[in-house]
Structures are given as structure tokens and as C-alpha cells.
Design a protein around this nucleic acid. Sequence first.
DNA 1: CAGCTTATTGCGAATTATTTGCAAATGGCA
DNA 2: TGCCATTTGCAAATAATTCGCAATAAGCTG
Lengths: 151, 151
Amino acid sequence: MTLIQQVTERVRGEGGRMTGQRRLILEALENLSGHPTAEEIYARVRKEDAEINLSTVYRTLRWLEESGFVAPRWFEDDHRRERFDAAGSSDDHFHFRCRTCNQIIEFDDPNLEIVKQAFETQYLAEVENITLVLYGLCARCKIQPNQAQGA
Amino acid sequence: MTLIQQVTERVRGEGGRMTGQRRLILEALENLSGHPTAEEIYARVRKEDAEINLSTVYRTLRWLEESGFVAPRWFEDDHRRERFDAAGSSDDHFHFRCRTCNQIIEFDDPNLEIVKQAFETQYLAEVENITLVLYGLCARCKIQPNQAQGA
DNA sequence: CAGCTTATTGCGAATTATTTGCAAATGGCA
DNA sequence: TGCCATTTGCAAATAATTCGCAATAAGCTG
């Protein structure tokens, strides 16, 4: 089932409406690779609907976030700008961000479960959530520098 | 050697001045526990010098950051607000943040080195920096909830 | 398929953390 | 003690995101 179908089902179930704007924003989320910003999604959607407003994009993203369809992320090299992770909040994974080309790679590692448990045991705490970001150079930029993409 | 002494040495070495404002900000950094915000440092410093301006606090923190004496941190539950880690950028450690009392615990774990190396090997990347934050409930808040402190 | 209700949109203004420009103040060497 | 470049205070600028509100349009209902 596609993202648009899932969201449609959800929105209808709670008396909401599936508008043209929402459909376009969902399409943009599926098609834009990486973790786009609201502006990037806005730019993409604008190609189809020149009248759409940036605040509609923000509102829709916030609403998708509440339902767990997207998760907000912030990276330190650009900490003011929110990015949207279309993988949603359910599927947990970690991130690597290349400081040259700005690409984001998602990965997972079972060691994080160990780190979490060790912390919980030592501090008698309960860990609900983990954010891990590795910053550095991706394979390509290690060899051939300066391929900077969008911020 | 105290932080103020270290910074004085550095600033004099590069033709800068150790002003009363800078001294107070450094004292605040040493005395405030956790990872204070610029506003918190400002509030503290203001008790000694009612004339100091918030932008002086920001400028000084930025300058300390450039020299590696403090490191900026952002936590997701309050992602817009910058916090300053007096441990500096040299000493690397990770963070736990309690979602109830907002306290920050610093910790280290050798498994992160393994995660880093595994990632570098698999993706042929070079990791320069790691940010890891665990979010959850600290020991006290697990038992006795609602002791919320500053944001 | 036209009407109706109210969820959603567009727009512009507000918000908030941080930064900047500039004239006035001051640290610290001569 | 005076000089002058570095720093400060102040007020205005920035920039991402949010909000209020009147206008628009989903999608039931008849």
C-alpha cells in the first residue's frame, strides 16, 4: 500500500479530507530522496500547483508527523532547519551525514541496543528514544572532494 | 588550571582582552550545572552586572566555541535552543536527556567506537564526529514523576 | 448533481532565537 | 595618563516556523 493510500485511509477515518495539496506533498515526500526540508518539498510541489502556500506545506508536515508518517530531524551542521524523514517514526534507524555533499545515509547497528541497555542498567534509567548521527566524509567525497549539494 | 586562566592565556596570546563581562560569563559556565542556554548564562551573569547585554553573552559564547572551550548542543525536545557544553569539544562524550526533569547526563561507551568502525568499513566513509543522545526517564523520574525543571 | 457544513487553505503578520552594524566605552600597553 | 584597537550596548535585522482569519473546497446528504 502506497503512502498516499495509507494516509487517505487514516485521514478519512478521522473525518479529515484528502485535498489536492496533501496529495502533492505526499508525492513529493515519496519522490524526494534523502531528508528534504519544508522549502525543498514546497519547491517540488509548486511545479504542479503554483498557488500552494509554504504554510500549507508546514501544516501538512506537522500533521503527518503527529500521525507518525514522517519524523522531524535536525542535523548539527544546519541545526535550524528541520528535515523530514519519510521513513516515519516507527522504523528506527540512525544517520550519517556527509559534510561535503550533505547526503544522508540511513543505517542500523545492533550495538546501539547494547549501549542503551548498558546505560539503563548503570543509571537505572529508561531510554525511550535514541538519536545517533555520524558526521564525516562519504566514500565519494573522500576521494573526489567538493561535490556540495543543497545545504 | 581554571577555565578563566586557560582562556585568559589564550586571549592574551592573540591580542585580545580579558574583560569583566568575559570573566563573568566564564564563571557562570563553571558554576551552572548541565548545559545552560545563552539566556540562563545571561540571567546568572546579570546578578553581578546588571548592564551586560544578551548579545555580549552570545558573542562571547561563540568566541569560546571557536577556541574549543565550549561546544554547542541541541536536544530534540527543544531543538531551537542552543545549549553550551562547558566540557568543550575536545573531551568527547554522549548525552542522556530526561524528558521529565530535563536533566542531562553525560556518559561514554566503548561500543560507539565499534559502531563507527563498522560504518566506516561498510560504507568506505570517514567518520569525524558522533552525536548520540538517549531520551527517556532518569532514575528519579521513573519513580516520582513531574519534577520538571527549566525547558 | 446541487447544497451545505466545516475542514483546510492562502495570506500576511507574529514569534523567537540568534546575529549584526555602529557609535560609545574600556582594557592594557607605551 | 593617554592612546587606540578591541569590546560592548543597543536597536534593528534575520530567518525558520507558526498563527489568525476570511475565503475556499471536500465530500456527505438529499
